[in-house]
Design a protein around this nucleic acid. Structure first.
Lengths: 360, 360
DNA sequence: TGTTAGCACTCCTCTCGTTCGAGTGCTAAC
DNA sequence: GTTAGCACTCGAACGAGAGGAGTGCTAACA
């Protein structure tokens, strides 16, 4: 079956109306609100075709139609207007953040909050993983007799700190001295590179013989190896409760619990990250592998440091979500923070990994 | 009307049964399940009295009774068993945390998570405020040409960091030197004490004349003054969705949104903090000032550093909550971390501020 | 005097049938 | 190709009625 211009108009009308009302859309509604020069009967025929193509579906016989995952996919890829980026509030608010020298993690948090309030959906931000970050500066600080604090400044001015156990008390002067040496040896390297062999090498080079020093180095290396805090920041989860598709409390609960399980989210989104190019990535309904997300859509942007992707910012909402608004917001964000995003792709940058959706 | 032993038994039976079922309790149920030697008619008479005393209430004429705020208050103050503390799982799990030298804030987070999973309610932990904390150690670290990082270690090994703008680039050696001086001057003081006059004094003492130095000190003082991050950590919010009293999604939403507004929570709980003594504090239903919490109860423990209260750990649940379990869990916690809590009060430490509840 | 059986009454909840209306598919006419 | 008309479907809304849990009151009993 071929795809006429009119069919596309009708599909778009259904999507628009369903976005507003969250109720199945009937032929009459479209005839009155969108295509006044056509009768409902004509539209009925076209809708029948659209259903056969798998772009819309019928909850039950005597109901209107709702868009399917495939329908939304077509809308997002071909129909959606992509040029209204900057007359959003985004720009104004973003500018507030832009000027300050900030730490990447708090910037990301603020962006997450902002996107959640702006879109009224839920945002999920994966924080940069320590292991993949490069060390800028390192500093040992005295804490008490049994421990010191190791402060790490990495890419994007993120500050992390860990308690390091001490075999024997050490004063701040010696801690400073060690810090200096370690800085020379380690800064510029990624944390993942700071493995045992490297530490051994440092030990040899420094001709470390004192037991104290040796145990300290071991403790540091141990801490770095085990510090894998792929943190996830979520904002706007309560927005979920205002969508009619989640008026069933069990559904709402299952989704919210899923979103609050950091490890799961991390796993989910980090698999996405690998597959996607510079632009936005949209996953619609059943395109999501995970059961709980089958009636949700996720729009994801990767953020970078230098030329490496180091994390993602996602907006999660019902499949019915206002894709245009979400995409605009994210693209506005990407324009406003060119240092944080790849900006190669431009308009046609929306990518889709593989169409292994499970529509009928 | 006088309060017979039997009336208390009946009240307790109602509370117990309502905790389990979340449904109004009838006289017949009590006669069968709790007081088999009394007929339902007798119990009806007693229940009528209890209602007149305002301890229980009737949702509608032909329904059973549910406990009122006042009823729960009496239960908590007089009836509840208080001795089964340590056969809980608490102890075992807590021990995992106890050994390590940890930072207070992450310890509190873990405690919050633990209490939420243990009680199946929601926990709210207010983090120590920077202003009220004492400085242990301070360190400036180079970041880039325009900024340095100020790392503060305070009471409880909490590490905070702030970006400090620099007028001119400074190398790490000079930053170390300044750190040393500031450490001598400031460590041991509370952050609130580090106000402008003190900074001025330091400037004079150091005979600071260089513009660079002066602007740096100003920036530090400015940062400290404006850093008021009374953070709130919440865990187990989704548990709310499993209580029948919040099966109405609007109610659930209103509560969850309230709990996620950090500033509001902070305000709410910090007013509690002032009024309460060493032990646990329980606020039941309408005893809460805030509308959204009128059918919730909150059990709060203050935690301390040295002899100052610096924050609170609260469990929030429906008014029907299992007070005994929650109190046990919190008291177990307090026993396991004697450094973190005042342990003067002991058993009768539950306090109540003022009985301005609004029961009929 | 306290306890209990009995009974009328209330009122919520559940179920079932009915109606209503939105929407469809099909057919025939334009 | 478009449209009017019509029969049909099916969910949502409504109301009546049954059922049941629970109460309060009264009268009898120990």
């Amino acid at each position: 079956m071929d795809m006429s211009e009119r069919k596309l108009q009708i599909l778009q009308a259904i999507i628009l109306n369903y976005l507003e009302t969250a109720e199945p859309v009937g032929s009459r509604t479209i005839s009155r609100r969108f295509l006044m020069d056509l009768s409902s009967a004509t539209i009925r025929n076209e809708m029948s075709d659209l259903e056969e193509m798998g772009l819309i579906e019928q909850p039950h016989t005597s109901a209107g139609r709702i868009p399917s995952s495939k329908g939304y996919r077509l809308y997002v890829d071909q129909l959606m207007k992509r040029d209204t980026v900057d007359d959003q509030q985004v720009g104004i608010l973003m500018n507030l953040l832009k000027d300050k020298t900030v730490q990447l993690d708090s910037l990301l948090r603020e962006i997450g909050d902002l996107l959640a309030t702006l879109t009224k959906y839920t945002t999920v931000v994966t924080m940069p993983q320590l292991k993949r970050s490069k060390l800028k500066h390192l500093q040992l600080m005295p804490l008490d007799e049994h421990s010191a604090i190791l402060v790490l400044v990495t890419d994007g001015n993120i500050v992390r700190n860990h308690v390091i156990p001490l075999q024997h008390p050490m004063d701040s002067t010696s801690l400073y001295k060690i810090s200096d040496v370690l800085n020379q040896e380690l800064s510029g390297l990624s944390v993942a590179q700071m493995d045992l062999p490297l530490i051994q090498k440092i030990k040899r080079e420094l001709n470390v013989d004192s037991e104290v020093m040796e145990s300290l180095l071991d403790a540091i290396s141990d801490t770095l190896q085990h510090a894998d805090d792929g943190d996830v920041f979520t904002s706007g989860t309560t927005n979920i409760l205002s969508f009619p598709e989640f008026s069933d409390i069990a559904r709402a609960r299952s989704l919210m619990e899923f979103l609050s399980q950091k490890d799961q989210m991390l796993h989910l989104i980090s698999t996405e990250e690998k597959t996607s190019g510079p632009g936005l990535k949209i996953r619609i309904g059943t395109e999501n592998q995970i059961e709980q997300l089958h009636d949700c859509s996720i729009v994801t942007a990767n953020y970078r440091y230098g030329d490496r992707t180091i994390g993602t910012i996602s907006v999660v909402g019902p499949m019915r979500m206002d894709y245009q608004k979400v995409v605009s917001a994210l693209e506005g964000l990407m324009q406003d923070f060119p240092d944080l995003f790849f900006t190669g792709g431009g308009h046609n940058a929306i990518t889709q990994e593989d169409t292994n959706g499970r529509e009928t």
